[in-house]
Nucleic acid binder design. Structure first.
Lengths: 196, 196
DNA sequence: GACCATACGGAACGATGTCCCGTTTAGCAA
DNA sequence: TTGCTAAACGGGACATCGTTCCGTATGGTC
């Protein structure tokens, strides 16, 4: 809920011009720093890159999780929307599932440390967990249900468990040439298959 | 190399009696604290539990990884030795592989945070990574080779990659009732199977 | 031009890993 | 037994990081 000012709340007063400018600056700076130093880069680095004080970050984004959410919201939405689309354009529901997981993995492994912080038990990241899960678990559930209904996979694995597993497989995948998260995620999905 | 005094090095002088006593005390204290607070408990807590200063820990165990290794060495050894034994007593190599992975998962999920720190990219844990990998990867390789030779599984997944995947799946498994690392690891292994 | 709520910057605080330095003590020899 | 020295110790010092507080600056408005 840190977009410029879509007035959802009651009597949401418009932000001051400098505040709106700073929020945009911060998002850009955070995105840049995330690329080079990972999502757990020091807050001071982001503030410095944006040319603001550290407190300004916390004023706009109460927790670091809120900042991460704001930075990646567009891509998460795109991933969520790809689910139903894949279900329509793929030969079988299982193929759609495979492709969607591949999208999800690609998203995670290209964001340094995002998978790790997604799994972090650190309190304060609850908002991040909740957002990802709320947005993506229903999509995954639908894909799983479709594949199960078609008799392609077993039906006893909840989507949330599968997604956490895939998320975990992506941890640390970006800097180890001997570790291919995509392949392992593919193995995990393959493990769902029922003998024909 | 933090055992009391097996003199491998050249002219390894024997430790003083109090030093040997403190090392034992530290190991016990660390083991106790690891159980209650996880392997990433503050160093100060361990020192307090042992009734020594923080510097004493670093003197005996240059990095936290060395302390963790020392605490769990016995169990890692047991896991490593179970590999060949399972291969002999199981009906098929694939069954042995399944059982061994199950042992590995059990070991990880019962040690709070061990899987996470095993995957940590934090420098200073290199020794921990190296120890686990050096000790267990050859065992896993042998199991994989045997199963592949029997035509039960595909042969293109390196043991190290599989173990890292399983390790990742175990992250955060101990405190989430909706997450069953054993089941997911089983899925991953099942994904290796070749159609008959 | 003046007012004030809003927003800002940077210092301050608490937690944690790590290192340094002055002090104590185990082991040994006279 | 006594005295010496290297080994070992303890705890405070330092650096880093997340987070909050407070005095100051400024945008929007009358």
């Amino acid at each position: 809920m840190n977009d410029s000012d879509r007035g959802a709340g009651p009597a949401a007063r418009p932000k001051r011009a400098d505040a709106r400018r700073n929020e945009k600056t911060l998002l850009d700076a955070a995105a840049a720093v995330f690329v080079t130093s990972g999502v757990d880069a020091p807050v001071r680095d982001i503030a410095a890159k944006a040319g603001v004080g550290t407190a300004t970050i916390y004023r706009h984004f109460p927790t670091r999780a809120d900042l991460i959410i704001a930075v990646y919201r567009h891509q998460v939405e795109a991933c969520a929307e790809a689910g139903p689309a894949l279900l329509e354009t793929s030969a079988t529901p299982f193929t759609a599932l495979e492709r969607w997981i591949s999208l999800f993995v690609d998203f995670l492994v290209t964001k340094h440390g995002l998978a790790a912080v997604l799994r972090s038990d650190d309190a304060g990241f609850d908002a991040l967990h909740a957002y990802f899960l709320d947005r993506l678990v229903p999509v995954c559930t639908r894909l799983l249900d479709a594949a199960a209904a078609a008799g392609e996979i077993r039906a006893d694995i909840p989507a949330i468990e599968l997604m956490r597993g895939v998320g975990n497989l992506c941890i640390g995948a970006e800097r180890d040439p001997h570790y291919d998260a995509r392949r392992l995620a593919g193995l995990l999905i393959a493990g769902l298959r029922l003998p024909r």
